[in-house]
Structure formats: structure tokens, C-alpha cells
Nucleic acid binder design. Structure first.
Length: 789
DNA sequence: CTTAGCCGGGG
DNA sequence: GTGTACGGCTAAG
């Protein structure tokens, strides 16, 4: 039978671990089970093997249940060796045996003792989630008992995706599980479902509303819809951290059981100490929040902002204190609330359509469950890819670093990329070049791998270091990376040839997934938690890269007489004047001198740029599109006026090339602040109170402001956004934070807003203009820029 | 300068 | 569940 693997899990039946595969069949969904797979670990013998085998078998007698000990030929960091595979009864026997073997004489090391059972199953059976699987076996109850399993061919099927959002009554700031009910559940699916489940009837009929008796009833109805429509994927926004944990607590309180899992199981919240995650067996639960955080850099990840930046949709947010009032007041306010809730689910679905395809592709490359892959960092993705490749090539998988080793690694540092000190100020007609995937190319070209690393030789030597990398055998990591890069090149070729837009889009996502992975290998080797960590490798990649970028800069300056105004790691910015052809000649020449797959590319032309310091600059292209790096105000506890002023200054410099105009904008803003010609909104700073006031050790401005709210008889609770302004006075800044509702424009401290908000935002840029203090002082008798402003 | 503590998203 | 985040920023030391 053929099935598309959606999810995998295991459970214990009669003391035996049974792997459960959730499959989407060609006709119907089904569950297949496999009880033939046993957990194991490896022990490395330090000397004579016979005795060790005996000792392990004896140690296993009784409680620890050793099924078998097998001598295998394996490799460890490329070296051939013998390892003992210790096969056990149940995954939970593994940690116990691990401890026993560690203390047995003659065992050097225990390996592969912490690989989750189902993940190991996927690797060893060589199957992958979101792929078609051929299973042979016999029906037993509602399940198929697997006799044989293998990968199969097939087209990616339509997956049924449900986006959902819950609204919770919250009269005291953050809602309290024991008291505050869930008042709405909104649903939007790619099968056309649009629905808000609630238990308060709006005055007028709204077609997508289903009014039920009470909270319990909407929860039950949610379960019913889930089971009837049998969704493959469930998406939400911050649902790991809020919606599902809250739902689970409410269910306990209401003494209600919801079987949302495909096998009738309940939602499980895992990882209490770290970040929680909500698992729904048989379906993938995807929380878009962590995905979007990794995928796009934004100043705020509030849903409304994400939707605005990513989808270009304007959507209003209902502030926390308004939500419960709207519910209480009913009438039009209730209708508004219902519509907003519906909108939340709808935009979540739109975001899912945008971000899920990449997760699908990463899942298919890394070959671990979608639920897990969607929560992995880039380093984890690389690691799972390496783990599978290691097993294929009988490489033993190294352990994660233990306590002290991890600390040692975090303390190891090395020199990173080369950054050229910029020519400060405005430059015109700039050509930008960068190396195509420089770090991955260096790893492959120079065969950089823990197993090829040597010291004190001369072949393939790392510039400036006593390291070199043998080219005798292709390293484990470069081999995998090369494969990935080849694959991606072929994909890009197919994109160029394809005429079918849909196919192009699919291939585009695939090549992008490969790019993400390829670009993560360098970081991985320098990541302290990595199994294949090797500082010297990461260090060498950076050293080779520095050599190449410096070499190319030298060619630009000495052979082509092009002025290099800036460059960072893998890029260089040169003044090209009006001779655009020269850029291409330079490029062609450079590429003849570069070895292996290392290649320089032309990134673009810009008509103007401002360079402030390393990593801080702004460019404008021929179509007036502005790119800003390192200057943006990403923190939300900046007053709006500071950010706006910075943007206006940048625009004056880039579009008008007018430092005078920039200066006058700053001057005008300062005047406005001094003369109090600003709005409250301009100067209000927002920070969330995330716990009770007394729980804070550090007293920050928003905490002081919250204390003042309490003093005035207002209730504050965790979760409230505190809006405050900094007022006049001589005390510390934090002591001068006042809740915005208790102050007027007469109270704020202009000097604070000028010195701590406006100045940091614009001063660096203004200074980089080569704006001598003298120039700024012209006509104004002041000593410094600060005073002049 | 380094170190310790806090924050995010959700309602 | 054969597992335990993370990177950025601020105030204090």
C-alpha cells in the first residue's frame, strides 16, 4: 500500500516500542505500525573486544535488557574502527545502559545514545516525512502491521491546512487559565472553511458565526470540525506559547477531553523548561511565529506588523484592554471583535501559504518530521542532514558536548570576516560585487572538514595559520555540501529552462531551501552545541575568505584603479563613475584568478550611498529604492519621533544629497521638542510588563511607571503594555518614567528626548558626513554639535 | 568593560 | 522522552 507520510510517533504496547506512521493514502488516510525496530547504542572498545562483549551482556542481565551485542566495522571522523552495537528492548533502556557502559572497564566511549527513537527509525529505514512510502503488511484492527517499508515515487498531494486563532477573556491583563474563559475560536482553511465559534450572540446575523451554548460547546465543536474535515496541518501564530497551553489548562479546569490527534489522542505540551511546543499526533501543528522570526527581520513580530510587512495587508489590532470590554459591551463592539477574530485566522492562513512551502522542502531534504523541522534552527537542520548521511556511510555520529566541553567551546574564539573601514560620508556611482556563496565554496574548494584537518604541513595551507586540510580523501562535510550545491545548481538550471510558472515557483522554493542549508554549514562547524564542531574548521573558512576578499580588493585598486569605499566579508563596494563596462571587465578578470567553485558576482549599481561606520550604511539605487544596513531602529522601546527623524535624515541625504537639509530636519525636530510642538504619541514609549511588579530585580522604566499606576489605584497585571514618557527632574531616568495617562505635554523632559532618543539616532549619520563641527557651528556660536543642536 | 537579568509573540 | 532555546539589549557592577 502507498501512503504519504505526514507524521510519525511511537507508543509502548506490552513493553515493546511500536512505531506509528500516519499516512495519507491514495484514497483514505491510514495508520501503519511497526514493532520490529529496536533501539541501540554503540560502545567503542579501548582494547580487547571479547571480554567487553561479555561484560556488557552480563551488565545487561536482569533489568537492563540487552538483546544483542554485535561487532561492526564503523568509521569515526573518517578513521576505520570496530564498534559494538548494543541492541536493547525499549528506548527507555538506553539511558540506563549508557550509564552502565560508561563505567565498564574497556569501553572508551558510548555513542548514538541520545537519538530519539522515531528519528532513528526514519534514518535506519531510509524513509522520509512528506514523501510517498510503500508499505507491505497485514491489516490488524484499524492499522496496517508493517512487514516491509520503503520509499516510493509520487506527486506532492494537496494537504488540508487549517489556520486557527483563539480569543480569551482578559479583564486583568494577561488571561488567567483558572478563571478566564475562551470566548472565540476562529477557523480558516485552504478548503474554504471560514468560521468563528463563539458563545455570545451578536445582534445581527453574521454568516460565518456559529453561536453555541458556552465555552465547553465551542471547544467540542472545534474538535468535531477537526475530526470531520481531518486536517493534515494545523497552523497558528504563537500557538506553542499561548493558544495551546491555554487551551490545555482550560480543558483541565472544565474537566473536558478533546481528541484533536488523528489517533484520538489529546494535545501534548512538551518542553516545559525550555520553550513549550504543542504536539498533535498525526497532524503537523505549525506555529508560524518562530518560523517568521527566523525567516524575516522585522522590528516587531506582532501579527499586525508581520501581516503589514510580509503581505502588505493593513489590519487593526484590538488592544488587550479593549478586547474584554468589547465582549462585555456586546452590540457593535461584539460584532467588531468577531470580525477581527475572523481576520486573524484568515491572515494566519495567508501567512501559512507563504511560509509553509519552504518548511515542506526543508522537511524533504532533512528527512525529519515537519512538526520538528519547522521548529529547528539552521544548525539543527544541518545536523540532522549530517546524521542521516553519517548513518548511510557507516560513520558514527559524534556526541553532543557535555557540560564542561560546552563551556570550553563557548570560550573559543577566532577572527571572523574582513571588514574594510568605509570611506565615510556620501559616495556616488557605486558598483557592488559579492562572492557567490563564499563560505560554502571555500569549504568545498579547500576540503575543510574535521577529518581532513592537520597541522604543520604545507599543502592546502590556511593563510596566516598553522593549519592545512588534506585533499587525499574528500571530507565528510565537504562531500555533503558539494552534493547540495550541485543539486541547487541543477535546480537553478531547470528554473531557467522551465516555462511553467507553477513549476518555477516550486523549484524556486527548493533551491532556496538548499541555499539556506548550504549557508549554514560554516556556522554549524563553529556552533558550540554541534556534534561535528571543529573550531579550526570554522576559523579556516573565515581565514580563506579574508584572503580572497582582500585579494580581490587589491586587484580592483592596483590593476583597475578602482577606489574601494567599503567591503564586508564577501562583498566590495567600488566607485565606478560612469564607466559601467569597467565593472564587467574587472569581474571577468577576477574570476579567471579564483580557484575551484569560488566566484565573484556583480550585485548591482547604486547612484549614491552613505557610509557611517563598519556595518552601518545606506544605499539608493537608480529607481530610488533605499537599502539601509545597521542603522534601523529595531527596538520597540524607542519613541516614534526618533525613528521618524532618522528616516527623514537618511532620505534627505540619499535622495537630495543635501546634508544641509538633513541638518535642518534635525534642528527643526529639536526645536519642536523644546517648544513642545509634538504629540503625545511621538514621545510615548511602550514596554510590556511580563510578570508581577514585585518579581522584577532590575527596576526598569516601565516597571517604575507600572508602580506609579498602582499608586494611583489602577490595577496592573502581567501582560499589560505599559505606555510611559520620561518627565523632567534630576533623578535617574527610570525613576522619571510616568504613565502616559497621568502626564501632559508640559511634563516631558525635552533634554531626554533630544539626548537619548534623537541624538543617538541621527548623530552618527550626521558626523559621518564629514560635517566638521566648524561647518555646523557656522553662524552659530556653539562649541559642539550637541550644543549646536 | 563585563556580568546578570529581561524580553519576545499571544489575550 | 535514546532531547531542553536564543540572540539582543540594558542596567548594574
Amino acid at each position: 500500500m502507498k501512503g504519504f507520510l505526514l507524521d510519525i510517533d511511537y507508543e509502548t504496547r506490552d513493553g515493546r516500542a511500536v512505531v506509528k506512521l500516519f499516512l495519507k493514502g491514495e484514497e483514505a488516510n491510514f495508520i501503519a505500525v511497526d514493532d520490529s525496530f529496536l533501539p541501540y547504542l554503540y560502545a567503542l572498545p579501548s582494547g580487547e573486544v571479547e571480554g567487553l562483549v561479555e561484560r556488557i551482556r552480563e551488565a545487561g542481565n536482569g533489568e537492563s535488557r540487552v538483546k544483542d551485542v554485535l561487532l561492526e566495522d564503523k568509521k569515526f571522523f573518517g578513521r576505520d574502527l570496530k564498534a559494538l552495537k548494543v541492541v536493547l528492548e525499549h528506548p527507555q533502556d538506553v539511558p540506563r545502559l549508557r550509564e552502565i557502559i560508561k563505567n565498564i572497564e574497556g569501553a572508551d566511549m558510548v555513542l548514538e545514545h541520545d537519538i530519539l527513537f522515531v528519528r532513528r527509525y526514519l534514518i535506519d529505514r531510509d524513509i522520509a516525512p512528506l514523501s510517498w512510502i510503500e508499505v507491505e503488511g497485514e491489516k490488524s484492527n484499524a492499522e496496517l502491521r508493517i512487514r516491509k517499508i520503503s520509499l516510493a515515487e509520487g506527486k506532492f498531494p494537496e494537504l488540508k491546512v487549517l489556520a486557527f486563532d483563539t480569543e480569551v477573556y482578559n479583564p486583568k491583563g494577561a488571561p488567567r487559565e483558572k478563571v478566564d474563559p475562551i470566548i472565540m475560536i476562529s477557523l480558516a482553511s485552504n478548503t474554504g472553511l471560514r468560521k468563528v465559534l463563539t458563545w455570545k450572540k451578536p445582534d445581527r446575523n453574521i454568516d460565518f458565526v456559529e453561536v453555541l451554548e458556552n465555552e465547553k460547546a465551542i471547544l467540542k465543536r472545534f474538535e468535531e470540525i477537526m475530526r470531520q474535515e481531518d486536517f493534515d496541518i494545523l497552523v497558528g501564530y504563537n500557538t506553542d506559547n499561548f493558544d495551546f497551553p491555554y487551551l490545555v489548562e482550560r480543558l483541565k479546569k472544565l474537566e473536558l477531553v478533546l481528541a484533536l490527534g488523528r489517533d484520538g489522542s489529546e494535545v501534548q505540551i512538551k518542553g516545559r523548561r525550555a520553550l513549550p511546543e504543542a504536539r498533535i499526533k498525526g497532524r503537523a501543528h505549525i506555529d508560524l511565529y518562530p518560523i517568521i522570526r527566523r525567516a524575516v527581520k522585522l522590528s516587531s513580530y506582532v501579527l499586525e506588523n508581520v501581516v503589514k510587512e510580509v503581505l502588505g495587508i493593513k489590519k487593526e489590532k484590538i488592544p488587550g484592554d479593549k478586547l474584554w470590554r468589547d465582549w462585555d459591551e456586546g452590540g457593535e463592539n461584539l460584532e467588531k471583535l468577531i470580525k477581527y477574530s475572523m481576520e486573524d485566522a484568515e491572515v494566519t492562513l495567508r501567512l501559512a501559504e507563504k511560509f509553509l512551502p519552504l518548511q515542506y522542502e526543508l522537511t524533504r531534504i532533512v528527512k525529519q518530521p515537519l512538526h520538528d523541522v519547522s521548529r529547528m534552527t539552521a544548525g539543527q537542520l544541518v545536523e540532522w542532514l549530517l546524521m542521516r548521511e553519517a548513518s548511510k556511510g557507516s560513520e558514527l555520529i559524534p556526541n553532543h558536548p557535555a557540560g564542561e566541553e560546552f563551556i570550553r567551546r563557548t570560550e573559543e574564539t577566532y577572527i571572523g570576516g574582513y571588514v574594510r573601514e568605509p570611506k565615510k560620508g556620501i559616495s556616488e556611482d557605486i558598483a557592488v560585487f559579492d562572492f557567490r556563496s563564499l563560505y560554502p565554496s571555500v569549504i568545498v574548494t579547500h576540503n575543510i572538514d574535521p577529518s581532513t584537518f592537520m597541522r604543520g604541513r604545507n599543502e592546502n595551507r590556511v593563510p596566516g595559520l598553522d593549519y592545512c586540510f588534506s585533499k587525499e580523501k574528500k571530507g565528510f562535510i565537504p562531500a555533503i555540501l558539494e552534493n547540495l550545491i550541485d543539486h541547487r545548481m541543477k535546480m537553478k538550471q531547470r528554473i531557467r529552462q522551465s516555462k511553467d510558472e507553477l513549476e518555477k515557483r516550486m523549484l524556486e522554493v527548493q533551491q532556496y531551501a538548499l541555499k539556506i542549508l548550504a549557508n549554514s554549514f560554516y556556522g554549524y562547524m563553529g556552533y558550540p552545541r554541534a556534534r561535528w564542531y571543529k573550531k579550526e574548521c570554522a576559523e579556516s573558512v573565515a581565514a580563506f575568505a579574508r584572503m580572497y576578499i582582500q585579494k580581490v580588493m587589491k586587484i580592483a585598486e592596483e590593476e583597475f584603479k578602482l577606489e574601494v569605499v567599503y567591503g564586508d566579508t564577501d562583498s566590495l563596494f567600488v566607485l565606478i563613475g560612469k564607466e559601467k563596462e569597467k565593472a564587467l571587465q574587472f569581474l571577468e578578470h577576477v574570476n579567471k584568478t579564483l580557484p575551484g567553485i569560488i566566484e565573484l558576482e556583480h550585485e548591482g549599481f547604486y547612484k549614491r550611498g552613505i557610509f557611517v561606520t563598519k556595518k552601518r550604511y545606506a544605499l539608493i539605487d537608480e529607481w530610488d529604492k533605499i537599502t539601509v544596513k545597521g542603522l534601523e531602529f529595531v527596538r520597540r522601546d524607542w519613541a516614534p519621533i526618533a525613528k521618524r527623524t532618522q528616516q527623514e535624515v537618511l532620505s534627505a541625504l540619499l535622495k537630495d544629497a543635501s546634508p544641509e537639509k538633513a541638518a535642518s530636519i534635525v534642528r527643526k525636530t529639536i526645536e519642536d521638542i523644546r517648544s513642545r510642538n509634538v504629540s503625545m504619541e511621538d514621545i510615548t514609549i511602550y514596554t510590556q510588563l511580563t510578570k508581577g511588579i514585585s518579581a522584577y530585580k532590575n527596576i526598569e522604566p516601565h516597571v517604575i511607571a507600572a508602580q506609579k499606576l498602582v499608586k494611583r489605584g489602577r490595577e496592573v497585571a502581567p501582560g499589560m503594555i505599559i505606555s510611559y514618557v520620561i518627565t523632567k527632574g534630576t533623578k535617574m531616568i527610570s525613576q522619571r518614567a510616568e504613565p502616559v495617562e497621568f502626564v501632559s505635554l508640559q511634563d516631558y523632559d525635552p533634554e531626554y528626548y533630544i539626548e537619548n532618543q534623537i541624538m543617538p539616532a541621527v548623530l552618527r549619520i550626521i558626523e559621518a558626513m564629514g560635517y566638521s563641527k566648524d561647518y555646523l557651528k557656522e553662524g552659530i556660536e556653539q562649541e559642539s554639535i550637541k550644543k549646536w543642536f
